[in-house]
Simulated scan of single mutants.
Amino acid sequence: MGTTEPGSSAAAGPADAPATAGAPGPAPRVAVLDHGSGNVRSVVRALEAAGAEVELTADRERALAADGLVVPGVGAYSATLAQILAVGGDRIIERRLSGGLPVLGICVGLQAMFQAGTEHGERTRGLGQWPGEVTHLQAEVVPHMGWNTVEPAPGSALFAGIEQERFYFVHSYAARSWELEDTGPLKAPQVTWAQHEQDRFVAAVENGSLSATQFHPEKSGAAGARLLANWLGTLPRRDREQDA
Protein backbone atom coordinates (compact mmCIF):
# COMPACT_ATOMS: atom_id res chain seq x y z
CA MET A 1 0.00 0.00 0.00
CA GLY A 2 3.02 2.28 0.46
CA THR A 3 6.00 2.39 -1.82
CA THR A 4 9.53 1.43 -0.86
CA GLU A 5 11.13 4.07 1.32
CA PRO A 6 14.20 6.09 0.39
CA GLY A 7 17.33 4.54 1.78
CA SER A 8 18.21 7.48 4.01
CA SER A 9 16.10 9.41 6.44
CA ALA A 10 15.26 13.05 5.90
CA ALA A 11 18.22 15.09 7.03
CA ALA A 12 16.21 17.99 8.30
CA GLY A 13 12.66 18.74 9.26
CA PRO A 14 10.73 21.92 9.76
CA ALA A 15 10.48 21.65 13.53
CA ASP A 16 13.40 22.41 15.80
CA ALA A 17 12.14 21.06 19.12
CA PRO A 18 14.34 18.28 20.54
CA ALA A 19 12.80 14.88 21.22
CA THR A 20 12.17 13.96 24.83
CA ALA A 21 10.07 11.22 26.33
CA GLY A 22 8.32 13.87 28.38
CA ALA A 23 7.80 11.75 31.50
CA PRO A 24 9.94 11.31 34.63
CA GLY A 25 11.26 7.97 35.79
CA PRO A 26 12.75 5.10 33.80
CA ALA A 27 12.77 5.20 30.02
CA PRO A 28 9.66 3.63 28.50
CA ARG A 29 10.20 0.15 27.11
CA VAL A 30 9.04 -0.17 23.52
CA ALA A 31 8.87 -3.30 21.41
CA VAL A 32 9.04 -2.89 17.63
CA LEU A 33 7.26 -5.82 16.01
CA ASP A 34 9.80 -7.69 13.90
CA HIS A 35 7.67 -9.02 11.04
CA GLY A 36 10.11 -8.39 8.18
CA SER A 37 9.29 -4.77 7.35
CA GLY A 38 12.10 -2.98 5.57
CA ASN A 39 12.12 0.12 7.77
CA VAL A 40 12.47 -1.40 11.23
CA ARG A 41 16.04 -0.28 11.92
CA SER A 42 15.28 3.38 11.26
CA VAL A 43 12.20 3.10 13.49
CA VAL A 44 14.28 1.59 16.29
CA ARG A 45 16.89 4.35 16.04
CA ALA A 46 14.26 7.09 16.02
CA LEU A 47 12.54 5.69 19.11
CA GLU A 48 15.86 5.40 20.93
CA ALA A 49 16.68 9.00 20.03
CA ALA A 50 13.27 10.03 21.39
CA GLY A 51 14.11 8.49 24.76
CA ALA A 52 12.86 4.90 24.67
CA GLU A 53 14.48 1.61 25.58
CA VAL A 54 13.76 -0.35 22.39
CA GLU A 55 13.70 -4.02 21.49
CA LEU A 56 13.09 -5.43 18.01
CA THR A 57 11.17 -8.65 18.58
CA ALA A 58 8.43 -10.98 17.40
CA ASP A 59 8.31 -12.77 20.75
CA ARG A 60 4.76 -12.70 22.08
CA GLU A 61 5.57 -12.37 25.76
CA ARG A 62 8.16 -9.64 25.28
CA ALA A 63 5.83 -7.71 22.98
CA LEU A 64 3.05 -7.98 25.56
CA ALA A 65 5.33 -6.92 28.44
CA ALA A 66 6.52 -3.71 26.77
CA ASP A 67 5.09 -0.31 27.71
CA GLY A 68 4.38 0.33 24.02
CA LEU A 69 4.32 -1.69 20.81
CA VAL A 70 5.17 -0.20 17.40
CA VAL A 71 3.95 -1.90 14.21
CA PRO A 72 5.90 -0.58 11.19
CA GLY A 73 5.19 -1.39 7.58
CA VAL A 74 6.27 -0.52 4.04
CA GLY A 75 5.39 -1.92 0.64
CA ALA A 76 2.32 -3.87 -0.40
CA TYR A 77 -0.71 -4.19 1.86
CA SER A 78 -1.17 -7.92 1.22
CA ALA A 79 2.50 -8.69 1.84
CA THR A 80 2.58 -6.69 5.07
CA LEU A 81 -0.56 -8.40 6.37
CA ALA A 82 0.94 -11.79 5.57
CA GLN A 83 4.11 -10.87 7.47
CA ILE A 84 2.18 -9.65 10.50
CA LEU A 85 0.04 -12.80 10.56
CA ALA A 86 3.09 -15.05 10.11
CA VAL A 87 4.58 -13.91 13.44
CA GLY A 88 1.25 -13.87 15.27
CA GLY A 89 1.21 -10.09 15.27
CA ASP A 90 -2.56 -9.97 14.92
CA ARG A 91 -2.98 -11.85 18.22
CA ILE A 92 -0.33 -9.72 19.94
CA ILE A 93 -2.02 -6.51 18.82
CA GLU A 94 -5.48 -7.74 19.81
CA ARG A 95 -4.25 -8.88 23.22
CA ARG A 96 -2.54 -5.57 23.93
CA LEU A 97 -5.53 -3.51 22.87
CA SER A 98 -7.97 -5.63 24.85
CA GLY A 99 -5.87 -4.86 27.92
CA GLY A 100 -5.59 -1.15 27.15
CA LEU A 101 -1.88 -1.41 26.26
CA PRO A 102 -0.65 1.16 23.71
CA VAL A 103 0.08 0.29 20.08
CA LEU A 104 1.43 2.63 17.38
CA GLY A 105 1.16 1.74 13.69
CA ILE A 106 3.33 3.41 11.04
CA CYS A 107 2.53 3.72 7.31
CA VAL A 108 1.20 0.29 6.22
CA GLY A 109 1.06 -0.35 9.97
CA LEU A 110 -1.78 2.20 9.99
CA GLN A 111 -3.43 0.76 6.89
CA ALA A 112 -3.34 -2.76 8.34
CA MET A 113 -5.62 -1.67 11.19
CA PHE A 114 -8.53 -1.15 8.80
CA GLN A 115 -11.01 -3.80 7.75
CA ALA A 116 -9.53 -4.35 4.29
CA GLY A 117 -7.29 -2.99 1.56
CA THR A 118 -7.64 -3.21 -2.21
CA GLU A 119 -4.49 -3.15 -4.31
CA HIS A 120 -4.24 -3.91 -8.04
CA GLY A 121 -7.76 -5.34 -7.92
CA GLU A 122 -6.93 -7.70 -5.04
CA ARG A 123 -8.87 -7.20 -1.80
CA THR A 124 -7.02 -8.29 1.34
CA ARG A 125 -8.59 -8.59 4.76
CA GLY A 126 -6.98 -6.34 7.35
CA LEU A 127 -6.80 -6.59 11.13
CA GLY A 128 -10.25 -5.04 11.49
CA GLN A 129 -9.55 -2.70 14.38
CA TRP A 130 -11.30 0.04 12.40
CA PRO A 131 -14.04 -0.25 9.77
CA GLY A 132 -13.32 0.97 6.27
CA GLU A 133 -11.08 0.14 3.36
CA VAL A 134 -7.70 1.35 2.13
CA THR A 135 -7.79 2.28 -1.57
CA HIS A 136 -5.69 3.95 -4.27
CA LEU A 137 -5.13 7.68 -4.01
CA GLN A 138 -7.14 9.63 -6.56
CA ALA A 139 -4.43 11.94 -7.86
CA GLU A 140 -2.49 12.57 -11.04
CA VAL A 141 0.87 12.13 -9.32
CA VAL A 142 1.19 8.87 -7.39
CA PRO A 143 2.91 7.89 -5.18
CA HIS A 144 2.45 10.78 -2.80
CA MET A 145 6.07 11.23 -1.81
CA GLY A 146 7.66 14.00 0.22
CA TRP A 147 6.82 16.55 2.91
CA ASN A 148 3.24 17.57 3.56
CA THR A 149 1.24 19.40 6.19
CA VAL A 150 -1.54 17.77 8.18
CA GLU A 151 -4.77 18.90 9.85
CA PRO A 152 -4.47 17.62 13.43
CA ALA A 153 -7.55 16.72 15.40
CA PRO A 154 -8.38 19.27 18.13
CA GLY A 155 -6.66 18.33 21.38
CA SER A 156 -4.39 15.77 19.73
CA ALA A 157 -1.70 14.40 22.05
CA LEU A 158 0.46 13.16 19.17
CA PHE A 159 0.66 16.59 17.52
CA ALA A 160 0.98 18.71 20.66
CA GLY A 161 3.43 21.51 19.85
CA ILE A 162 3.81 20.46 16.19
CA GLU A 163 0.38 21.26 14.82
CA GLN A 164 1.80 23.42 12.00
CA GLU A 165 4.70 21.18 11.00
CA ARG A 166 5.29 19.01 7.95
CA PHE A 167 5.81 15.25 7.86
CA TYR A 168 7.31 12.82 5.36
CA PHE A 169 4.91 10.67 3.33
CA VAL A 170 5.59 7.92 0.79
CA HIS A 171 2.50 5.96 -0.25
CA SER A 172 0.13 5.22 -3.12
CA TYR A 173 -2.82 4.00 -1.03
CA ALA A 174 -4.65 5.44 1.94
CA ALA A 175 -7.78 5.35 4.06
CA ARG A 176 -9.77 8.04 2.27
CA SER A 177 -12.72 8.06 4.66
CA TRP A 178 -13.39 7.45 8.35
CA GLU A 179 -16.33 5.25 9.27
CA LEU A 180 -16.04 4.52 12.99
CA GLU A 181 -18.96 6.14 14.76
CA ASP A 182 -18.71 7.79 18.16
CA THR A 183 -20.65 5.44 20.41
CA GLY A 184 -20.78 4.76 24.12
CA PRO A 185 -18.92 6.47 26.96
CA LEU A 186 -15.42 6.11 25.44
CA LYS A 187 -13.56 9.12 24.09
CA ALA A 188 -14.26 9.71 20.41
CA PRO A 189 -11.43 8.82 18.02
CA GLN A 190 -9.26 11.75 16.97
CA VAL A 191 -8.58 11.71 13.23
CA THR A 192 -5.89 13.84 11.59
CA TRP A 193 -6.21 14.48 7.85
CA ALA A 194 -3.86 15.37 4.99
CA GLN A 195 -4.42 16.18 1.35
CA HIS A 196 -2.57 15.19 -1.82
CA GLU A 197 -3.73 17.23 -4.79
CA GLN A 198 -7.55 17.15 -4.32
CA ASP A 199 -7.70 13.85 -2.41
CA ARG A 200 -8.09 13.94 1.37
CA PHE A 201 -6.97 10.96 3.41
CA VAL A 202 -6.37 9.85 6.99
CA ALA A 203 -2.91 10.98 8.11
CA ALA A 204 -3.14 9.78 11.72
CA VAL A 205 -5.58 8.31 14.22
CA GLU A 206 -5.67 8.40 18.02
CA ASN A 207 -8.24 5.89 19.24
CA GLY A 208 -7.75 4.96 22.88
CA SER A 209 -4.76 2.66 23.14
CA LEU A 210 -4.39 2.43 19.35
CA SER A 211 -2.61 5.22 17.48
CA ALA A 212 -1.19 5.23 13.97
CA THR A 213 0.33 7.52 11.34
CA GLN A 214 0.28 7.24 7.55
CA PHE A 215 3.50 9.27 7.33
CA HIS A 216 6.89 8.13 8.59
CA PRO A 217 7.80 9.91 11.84
CA GLU A 218 11.21 8.25 11.75
CA LYS A 219 11.90 10.10 8.48
CA SER A 220 10.22 13.38 9.44
CA GLY A 221 13.18 15.11 11.07
CA ALA A 222 12.59 17.07 14.27
CA ALA A 223 8.81 17.10 13.81
CA GLY A 224 8.69 13.31 13.66
CA ALA A 225 11.02 13.04 16.64
CA ARG A 226 8.71 15.28 18.65
CA LEU A 227 5.69 13.21 17.65
CA LEU A 228 7.39 10.01 18.81
CA ALA A 229 8.36 11.72 22.06
CA ASN A 230 4.76 12.84 22.50
CA TRP A 231 3.60 9.24 22.08
CA LEU A 232 6.24 7.97 24.49
CA GLY A 233 5.04 10.52 27.01
CA THR A 234 1.57 8.94 26.98
CA LEU A 235 2.80 5.44 27.80
CA PRO A 236 2.07 4.02 31.24
CA ARG A 237 5.20 2.66 32.90
CA ARG A 238 4.46 -0.96 33.70
CA ASP A 239 5.82 -2.69 36.80
CA ARG A 240 9.36 -3.88 35.97
CA GLU A 241 9.54 -6.28 38.92
CA GLN A 242 6.22 -7.86 38.05
CA ASP A 243 7.32 -8.44 34.45
CA ALA A 244 10.72 -9.82 35.44
Rank of each mutant, 00 (worst) to 15 (best):
I93D: 08
E94P: 01
E94F: 02
L97R: 12
S98W: 00
S98Y: 00
S98H: 11
G99F: 00
G100T: 15
G100S: 05
V103Q: 11
V103N: 14
L104M: 14
I106F: 10
V108S: 07
G109I: 06
L110Q: 15
M113A: 15
A116C: 04
A116G: 07
G117V: 03
E119S: 06
E119R: 05
G121C: 10
G126W: 03
G128P: 03
G128W: 06
W130S: 04
W130V: 08
G132Y: 08
T135C: 04
L137W: 06
L137V: 12
L137C: 13
Q138M: 08
E140D: 13
V141Y: 04
V141A: 09
V141L: 13
P143V: 09
P143A: 12
M145G: 03
M145F: 13
W147S: 01
W147F: 14
W147K: 00
W147H: 00
N148G: 14
N148T: 06
V150W: 02
V150M: 09
P152A: 07
G155E: 08
G155V: 04
A157T: 14
L158Y: 11
A160M: 02
A160G: 09
I162N: 05
I162E: 07
Q164Y: 02
Q164G: 04
Q164A: 13
E165F: 01
E165G: 13
Y168G: 12
V170I: 14
H171D: 03
H171W: 02
H171I: 05
S172D: 13
Y173W: 14
A174H: 10
R176I: 10
W178Y: 10
E179K: 05
L180F: 00
D182F: 00
T183Y: 02
P185M: 09
P185H: 08
A188D: 04
V191D: 05
T192S: 11
T192N: 10
W193Q: 11
H196G: 08
H196Q: 09
Q198I: 03
R200K: 13
R200E: 09
F201P: 08
F201A: 11
V202S: 11
V202Y: 07
A203Q: 07
A203F: 05
A203G: 05
A204Y: 11
V205K: 06
V205D: 04
E206Y: 01
E206S: 03
N207L: 01
S209M: 08
L210F: 11
L210H: 06
S211W: 15
T213N: 09
P217V: 07
P217Q: 10
P217T: 05
K219E: 11
G221D: 03
G224A: 06
A225W: 04
A225Y: 03
R226V: 14
L227A: 12
L227H: 05
L228Q: 11
N230D: 11
W231R: 02
L232V: 03
T234W: 07
